[in-house]
């Protein structure tokens, strides 16, 4: 028997908290605007809908950042989100930024290329953050953060992340509720870093499966053994446990070697919202 914990959420409540979070955390930093890297996928579409609702579409800039191998469908899906939300938009092709570096190293594998693309997009996003006077709103969900299925200082870079405590399954539910076009919700998730890439193909399991396992282990504090007893395949459980552990480095700031009486990260403790 495959255990089926219920990951369903009250979308009205989630929407209320997340739009409140975006509004609060952007305005208290002295901003009123947001910039988003809009890929055409479901995660950035949801972040864009939430930011537009929180700040008003006139205060959101969605940036499309295609590479020459990016699927035309991604660009089209991003356009649908821009149209549906009414946000400002900008398209900056990253090919001329990325290709000279890739060409410099002819033996570069797809992973390195993908990371360069993700980081080139981050550079444009942060540059537009300064130009538009808006903070970068993140698009990483809980599943990919836990699995480390993200490029450090690339797609993971943001000022605030409204959807990082929602599993992919829950992102789908909320995306449906806020009006993200169905074609975006239903297509296979892909980082679109090379032709034919899909998340589930790369990970080796479906989001629906791994979300149930992660929910039991992380949210419900099941031990890996209890998950196996509950019906999950032992090899699958072990692979996911190890992947979550190995990617902890992507979820923390780089450790600073302690020398003084007071060290950032250990005993110099303030929230980001300090004084606001």
């Amino acid at each position: 028997m495959n255990p089926s914990p219920d990951l369903s959420i009250n979308t009205e409540l989630a929407r209320r908290i997340l739009t409140g979070f975006i509004r609060s955390e952007i305005t208290r930093m002295g901003f009123s605007r947001a910039v988003i890297n809009l890929s055409g996928g479901i995660d950035s579409a949801l972040s864009c809908f939430l930011a537009a609702e929180a700040l008003g579409p006139e205060n959101v800039l969605a940036i499309r950042l295609p590479y020459r191998t990016s699927s035309p469908e991604s660009l089209e899906h991003a356009r649908m989100v821009i149209e549906a939300t009414g946000v400002h938009s900008l398209t900056v092709e990253i090919t001329p930024m990325v290709d000279p570096l890739i060409e410099r190293f002819p033996d570069m594998d797809a992973l390195r290329k993908g990371n360069i693309m993700a980081r080139a997009r981050m550079i444009v996003l942060y540059d537009q953050s300064a130009a538009f006077h808006g903070l970068a709103v993140g698009t990483g969900n809980k599943t990919e953060i836990l699995l480390g299925y993200t490029t450090l200082y690339g797609d993971s870079a943001c000022a605030i992340n409204p959807i990082g405590d929602l599993y992919k399954t829950q992102v789908r539910q909320l995306a449906r509720a806020v009006g993200v076009p169905a074609v975006i919700i239903e297509k296979p998730p892909s980082a679109d870093l090379w032709v034919g890439q899909t998340d589930e193909g790369e990970l080796g399991y479906t989001y629906a499966e791994v979300d149930r396992l992660l929910y039991l282990m992380v949210d419900e504090r099941y031990t890996p053994e209890e998950c196996i007893e509950a019906g999950f395949d032992p090899a699958f459980v072990r692979a996911v446990v190890e992947r979550v552990r190995r990617n902890q480095f992507k979820r923390v700031l780089p450790p600073i070697a302690k020398l003084s009486h007071r060290t950032i990260g250990y005993d110099f403790l303030y929230l980001r919202d300090w004084g606001t």
């Binding site: 219920d6 369903s8 009205e12 409540l13 908290i17």
Partner: peptide
């Protein structure tokens, strides 16, 4: 602190 989002109408 609010936590525990489920299908219910409150946290």
């Amino acid at each position: 602190p609010g936590r525990g989002l489920s299908e219910r109408p409150e946290l």
